[in-house]
């Protein structure tokens, strides 16, 4: 039987990888992938808690919501990235600083 801690530790590791990807990646697609990782680490947590704690079906339902949301989010984000690419011919996020100052 795999204990709850194992799930939580794996989830935390995935979360940290995702976070590092978001903060460090210069490539916008990389960042999107990091975001996916973070979302999925959370999903893992929900499902784990649904199994071990008295959360029952609610945890799984929330996980499905998150998956749907992530799909939608990815679609929008990719559209933005594509547009940025069309204007600037790059998707390096350090060069996109219109909001600076």
């Amino acid at each position: 039987m795999i204990s709850l801690q194992t799930y939580l530790i794996i989830s935390a590791l995935v979360f940290i990888f995702g976070l590092i990807a978001v903060v460090n990646k210069k490539n916008a697609v990389g960042i999107l992938m990091g975001v996916e990782l973070i979302l999925n680490s959370v999903n893992l947590n929900f499902i784990a808690f649904a199994k071990y704690v008295d959360l029952s079906i609610k945890g799984q339902i929330i996980a499905i919501f998150v998956i749907i949301l992530a799909a939608a989010e990815a679609a929008v984000a990719l559209a933005i990235v594509l547009n940025i690419y069309r204007y600037r011919s790059t998707i390096d996020v350090t060069t996109v600083d219109l909001m600076k100052n």
């Binding site: 978001v22 903060v23 996020v93 350090t94 996109v96 600083d97 219109l98 909001m99 600076k100 100052n101």
Partner: peptide, 17 residues
């Protein structure tokens, strides 16, 4: 304070974290 505003989302996230 304007300096803080780098325009780099990654900086913001880092700060938030």
């Amino acid at each position: 304070l304007r300096r803080v505003q780098t325009g780099q989302i990654q900086t913001y996230i880092f700060a938030a974290v």
